[in-house]
Design a protein around this nucleic acid. Sequence first.
DNA 1: CTTTTATTGTGAATGTACACACAATAAGTA
DNA 2: TACTTATTGTGTGTACATTCACAATAAAAG
Lengths: 213, 213
Amino acid sequence: MRKFKVPEVTIFRLSLYLRCLSELEEEGVEVISSAELGQRCGINPAQIRKDLAYFGEFGTRGVGYYVKDLKEDIKRIMGLDKEWEVALVGVGNLGRALLSYQGFKRHGFKISVAFDKVVDEERLSAMPEGCTLYHADKMVEVIRERKIKLAIIAVHFSEAQKVADVLVEAGIKGILNFAPVRLNVPKDVVVRHIDLGVELEMLTFFLSARIGK
Amino acid sequence: MRKFKVPEVTIFRLSLYLRCLSELEEEGVEVISSAELGQRCGINPAQIRKDLAYFGEFGTRGVGYYVKDLKEDIKRIMGLDKEWEVALVGVGNLGRALLSYQGFKRHGFKISVAFDKVVDEERLSAMPEGCTLYHADKMVEVIRERKIKLAIIAVHFSEAQKVADVLVEAGIKGILNFAPVRLNVPKDVVVRHIDLGVELEMLTFFLSARIGK
DNA sequence: CTTTTATTGTGAATGTACACACAATAAGTA
DNA sequence: TACTTATTGTGTGTACATTCACAATAAAAG
Ligand SMILES: NC(=O)c1ccc[n+]([C@@H]2O[C@H](COP(=O)([O-])OP(=O)(O)OC[C@H]3O[C@@H](n4cnc5c(N)ncnc54)[C@H](O)[C@@H]3O)[C@@H](O)[C@H]2O)c1
Ligand SMILES: NC(=O)c1ccc[n+]([C@@H]2O[C@H](COP(=O)([O-])OP(=O)(O)OC[C@H]3O[C@@H](n4cnc5c(N)ncnc54)[C@H](O)[C@@H]3O)[C@@H](O)[C@H]2O)c1
């Protein structure tokens, strides 16, 4: 599909461009130059053009980019031209917050199944419309059956690797992991870590360096 | 303080090394080579040595690094040799999950005050021991009084920039932002964004690219 | 149809990060 | 003390990412 290797930061930025384009569309802007777009999302215009160039030519010289078209193009590039079902594992404090998060929908994601090793009234009552809670034993069966490819891990860190292994067995290909552990998975499975400890520590580094300077 | 510019990824990795060293210490390992440490956290040994070299010489040639010492050194480098108080703004679904998160303590962070524009029984009952909930109007006053420098933003995205402005006024120097908005702050304030939408979209890109290939 | 204008797409230059490979050196051993 | 061994700290080359700068070109104006 792709001819050349695309840097990971480029994908990250495409996602930013997409959000920005959605906002522009809502504001009724129809055409935008890389210069203006760059201003809005704090990125060098040449960078934007280079990023897009990995995937083709989307602009019109002398004019700029048609907001609606570029948005559709980036969505297609990122595989966002369809809805993605997501499986959530771990319906604890964090899991319940994620279940109630409305932001996923806007991006085209839907948590349609959740798993926990405890299935009680407290957890069942946290399930929103259109999402079913299963016991963790059902993971492989349900995920295979529904052909779900994306999962979120929100269990205690001591369980995270075990859960990841089961998810891989069930055919999951992308994992968003909130547990503070680097997961070990086959290389056809992509993992992204969200690590609050690390993020806060990076903040204190910059603060200390600044104050100490 | 620092002579040369340190890359951001280096800081990120220091935090990983730190976690790994804590684990090693618990396992009773006293000395470790960059080769072994690299193996454990999936990073090239030369990279580890380069990262450390930004800040001095911590190892012993022919031997390796003393786990306890290196851990203390990295903690000091990152400003983690003291406890940091953190202010949380927004005690909604996400905010409550964060309040109940035990992981912060291990890193030396403590959410000691929380703010919301709604102060009701539901939110008050979510406050753990040692953390007080105030009305959002009190932000500047309380944060100044307690000299808090770190804050977490967990309010609706439409409120995030306003909240950030108030936090800056109150003297906050580091912000962890969960709202899907790029915050505008003075350049002596550091912001880290946690953006679930972007993370999930990056996953779908890699999945689509792989499936389409 | 030709000229002007604006803005893309991209080669080349610069800057940054990574990995290799080895000299420097500390500790252990004879 | 001299020799051996292990492993760090770092100079150097390579790969990757960003920015600059401009030729290519589409649309608008004359
Ligand atoms: N709470 C937060 O704000 C927060 C923030 C960042 C990271 N995290 C991380 O997210 C993870 C979850 O945090 P939490 O606060 O929700 O914890 P929690 O203890 O409230 O919830 C964990 C849930 O996972 C379930 N579980 C445990 N093992 C399981 C298994 N093998 N299979 C299925 N379900 C299982 C438990 O029954 C529980 O419902 C932890 O690793 C934590 O470090 C939490
Ligand atoms: N819920 C999640 O799992 C999740 C995940 C990722 C990101 N986010 C983001 O985190 C933010 C919070 O999400 P949530 O689900 O907790 O929303 P929420 O609506 O449950 O909570 C928001 C809270 O902020 C308070 N608030 C609003 N404006 C305020 C202000 N100006 N000052 C003080 N308090 C204010 C509200 O009273 C409410 O208690 C959102 O921006 C969301 O996009 C949430």
